[in-house]
Design a protein around this nucleic acid. Structure first.
Lengths: 256, 256
DNA sequence: GGCCTTTATTTGTCAAACAAATTTACATTG
DNA sequence: CAATGTAAATTTGTTTGACAAATAAAGGCC
């Protein structure tokens, strides 16, 4: 007697709207729909999918939230496959990455390490490609960072601009895109380290060293300083953590 | 006589549903709402925002498409702030990013170069961190890629899995996230090169070499093969472009 | 205690109506 | 003929109201 082998097909889950959105997304992914193509009207889609128009609308809202379509009212209106800008996609990526960061999905040491590796990658490319414009930007920021009167916030903003200039110096738009996203997304963490415990002078000096190394195309020196800066940040962050721990233990009286 | 300076305030655009989704999203990103928190019911949100329930639903669909919330029916149902996985978030972002890539926003040489640099970064990390699981995955894919009966599509899918295993081998979740997103986003370009002109045997052999180098922790050898693979892809793509150019010039008669 | 049924609750879907935005076509005026 | 205004057509955006589907909890029965 042989036991019959029973195969169960996967259930259709997730609701109609989600399934419809997924179907339309596939037709974008597989190239059947291109940027600026117009989707059928909501009424027509409802007829084709044999569902109600509000269900179609819910599906379209899902697609809009992923920047895959945009909609417009009127005689020549409709829903169109979006032609996303670099800024739009980067902004979505940044938001999503920052959310993962804030949820603690990435551990601080991992973040610092990844940042270091990506920076090293930039340095490697920048050494042979740096233009005067990027060097000038970095120099300007280094000068700015050495002022004692600027706020922590402004110092952080300058830090971002310095690292963006470094990414610009790769002269590779894909790498720039990736780096800008990472730099922006990691700002909340950077702020945590930088804003509270940062020794500005050390950071500014390190930036100056990176800049000097790039000027003379000394990749090894620049890389060394990047590593040094990461180690310094790691140390500063650990110190901030330790201080926070001892604070919560002893609960000193709060001044008025 | 001084001309009065007229200031126009920005119009509220994007529809009610979009605005509501944005409001709720802000309360997530600014920490007021945490993972697993329950939102008010749809009816209650409709009351609070003074809009209809379908409008709330449309807003919630936007949030769901960004993996920020998940919903469930029933007595203890409702919409809950999601704790998204990295895979889930990455998956939401890849179609829009791939769309950007397919629009020619990035030049092919830049793409290939960036891909190479990011791969080299992975190799650098993977050499000292690779676990047996990743090696096994890569070996499985190399075997699979050597079969002659698989479709081009399946070969490409296996290629993706190989490179994802390499990213896994870094054991750094930030890098994994970045790499997964980049690998997926570059698929349209990869398909262009791979699908039409790919010499599968060459690619599979190169994967095998990378794997062998990782097994014996030979970073230099692995890096060399990554560079070789990029050069090969560049050459294959150039050949595909040249062939397309000569075709369009002479317009041969089309077979029936 | 285990199992079944009922109830309450919330999201999911549908139908129908009207509003808002947009373009096009047509009429009027100078 | 050009400029301006109005009406019509079309599509998305929003509302109201109803019912379906899914789920957990409570209560009853054995």
């Amino acid at each position: 007697m042989v036991k019959a082998k029973v195969i169960y097909k996967p259930l259709m889950t997730g609701g109609l709207a989600k399934q419809i959105a997924e179907r339309i997304r596939e037709s974008i992914t597989d190239g059947r729909l291109k940027a600026d193509d117009r989707l059928p009207t909501e009424e027509e889609l409802a007829r084709q999918f044999q569902v109600s128009r509000p269900t179609i609308r819910e599906a379209l809202k899902r697609l809009a939230a992923q920047s895959l379509i945009r909609s417009r009212r009127g005689a020549t209106g409709g829903s169109f496959i979006n032609r996303p800008s670099r800024e739009e996609v980067s902004s979505n990526l940044t938001t999503a990455t920052a959310l993962l960061v804030s949820l603690g999905e990435f551990k601080i040491p991992e973040i610092l390490e990844a940042r270091q590796e990506l920076e090293l990658l930039c340095v490697r490319q920048a050494v042979s490609r740096c233009g005067q414009a990027e060097l000038d930007t970095m120099a300007r920021e280094v000068d700015y960072q050495q002022r004692e009167s600027i706020s922590d916030e402004d110092f952080c903003a300058s830090d971002v601009r310095f690292h963006r200039a470094l990414a610009d110096a790769t002269h590779n738009s894909v790498l720039k895109f990736v780096m800008f996203t990472v730099i922006e997304a990691l700002q909340p963490i950077e702020n945590m380290v930088v804003y509270r415990v940062r020794e500005r002078k050390v950071i500014a000096r390190q930036h100056e060293e990176i800049l000097a190394a790039l000027r003379v195309k000394d990749e090894a020196a620049a890389a060394e300083t990047v590593r040094e800066q990461t180690a310094y940040l790691r140390e500063r962050f650990d110190a901030a953590q330790a201080m926070r721990k001892s604070h919560s233990k002893f609960r000193p009286a709060e001044p008025a």
